[in-house]
Nucleic acid binder design. Structure first.
Lengths: 112, 112
DNA sequence: CTCTTATATTCGCTTATGCGATTATAAGAG
DNA sequence: CTCTTATAATCGCATAAGCGAATATAAGAG
């Protein structure tokens, strides 16, 4: 199956790794990712679709939002090791998690 | 450290995965890899150098041969999982291992 | 030295990738 | 309906990647 190669290609780009790192925390919509990583909407959308085509994430539409979440089954559990043992030792990805936390907090407050 | 990204880029090409799969068996010279995978010398050499630059393999020169072997430390042990749990379930990579075995046998016999 | 073998490097080409900017689509909100 | 917000798709461009063919280098062999 060449799906493995697709998955590896999906993992060979920093932006997609950063997105995947966020999705390991929780399901997120496109705008959460744009805000957290400070990237353009087109860029976020493009890379999410790339990850989806590689079967690493799945999406779910609700009203005008599209929510993305992990779709990593045990066939490719090496990705768990990659994220927990490697990615998250790096400052960039740690900072992204903190930024996500901050963003989600601000977002909730604005709804009050 | 961006070395992780280099490693992932190195893993996103089928030829390099096939080479890595072989090196998980044993140290090999460039010509073993050409013969086993039936690829050109330039292609084998190029991809081995790519893997070396990503710190996934190391080389050792002996007489006119250059021997390549794994250089995967525990920082990137997710690659072990990738190879043993994913790659080696795929027919292509299983066949490559058989071809390697056959080639090494033939090679030894020619030296008698 | 000269020839052969093993490996690396360069060249020119083709295709793939990533990007910003823009446009299209789709669902609410009012 | 019309306007706004969220997301996807398209376009044109620049750069990277992979390839075969040819050439360069380096070490033995004779």
């Amino acid at each position: 199956m060449e799906k493995l190669l697709d998955a590896l290609k999906a993992l060979s780009d920093e932006t997609r790794l950063r997105i995947l790192n966020l999705l390991y925390e929780k399901e997120l919509c496109v705008c959460d990712i744009m805000e957290t990583l400070q990237i353009t909407q087109a860029k976020a959308s493009r890379h999410l679709i790339y990850l989806k085509n590689a079967d690493l994430v799945k999406d779910r539409k609700h009203a005008q939002w599209v929510y993305y979440s992990l779709a990593i089954d045990e066939r490719i559990k090496f990705i768990d090791s990659l994220v927990y043992d490697n990615l998250r030792n790096l400052e960039l990805y740690q900072n992204d998690l903190q930024n996500l936390k901050d963003w989600l907090k601000r977002k909730t407050m604005n709804c009050d």
